[in-house]
Write a protein that binds this DNA or RNA. Sequence first.
DNA 1: AATTTCACG
DNA 2: ACGTACGTGAAATTA
Length: 334
Amino acid sequence: MKLVDKPKKTKTGQYKTNEEELQKLAGDHEIIGVILDYREATKLKSTYVDALPGTISKKTGRIHTSFSQAVTTTGRLASSDPNIQNIPVRTEQGQEIRRAFIARSDEFTLLAADYSQIELRIMAHLSGDEHMKEAFVSGEDIHTATAARVFGVATGDVTKEQRRRAKMVNFGIIYGISAFGLAQRLRIPRKEAAEIIDTYFAQYPAVKACMDGIIETARNKGYVETIAGRRRHIRDINTANGTVRAAAERYAINAPIQGSAADMIKIAMIRIEKLLRGKKTKLLLQVHDELVFDLHKDEHDLIEEIRKLMSEALPLSVPVVVDCGVGRNWLEAH
DNA sequence: AATTTCACG
DNA sequence: ACGTACGTGAAATTA
């Protein structure tokens, strides 16, 4: 429709029509919003509404996923056939789908127990950064605390926009931040993004030192390690190609963070399995930082025991907070 | 079979 | 100038 001067192309030469590109055209033609709505609806219908009923076991009347323990590069589990780790939750229509996941009978409810900000807490632990640790020890909202530091205002004066940006920066830290990546996410010039990152590292100096140290380890040993000792080998960490090397450095930084979180929840799962022996309550699912249980109505005392096992699975130098919720369906449990 | 898009953490 | 945020799996489309 000639709405763009230089339309972006995919690597095979097709026009890019993903959400990010379409969103930029939202004000230029009324069809764009309609297409985005259509995309959302058809994605949910084909991937979940149409597909999941066919996966229900004839024998049990339930959906049984497969968890792979040796697939991901970081130590996370992967769920397939069907994937139950990507059940919708973000949009209204998505939430309707999540509501369909219910407890096994009237005697049960669903319990969702999830780690709060676990990857940033692991960053605080690995780096030992006093400012970041203090934010968690005092129970502050980490994104608000980061915003206050990066934008130089009091915690109470942090605006929504500042918090939103700080949240993006915190995510960036976990991913092995780059000025380009942050600039794209925040839709600001690369130079501004670079300044935000500089301020961030000035406020959390030990985080910067930790990230440099991880990269140094990768260069010297060829691999990085999680808290429990899982290794990820980092190819190309010493390559001359700057782009490839920068990517390798991001993998090196992300792997110990994402992987240590995976270590933690796996240790918790092993201990919880022992706790639940002989009980009616069953562990159903793991979704990276969350465990979902069929909780029997007479066993609600288990909630605090599960919370304790999860929060103490891999002790950190900051508090590990586990949020627990109970409901008739998976959406309500959150 | 490869690519693109998009669902989740 | 290059060209990137990390980790997955499934459906639809393209080649």
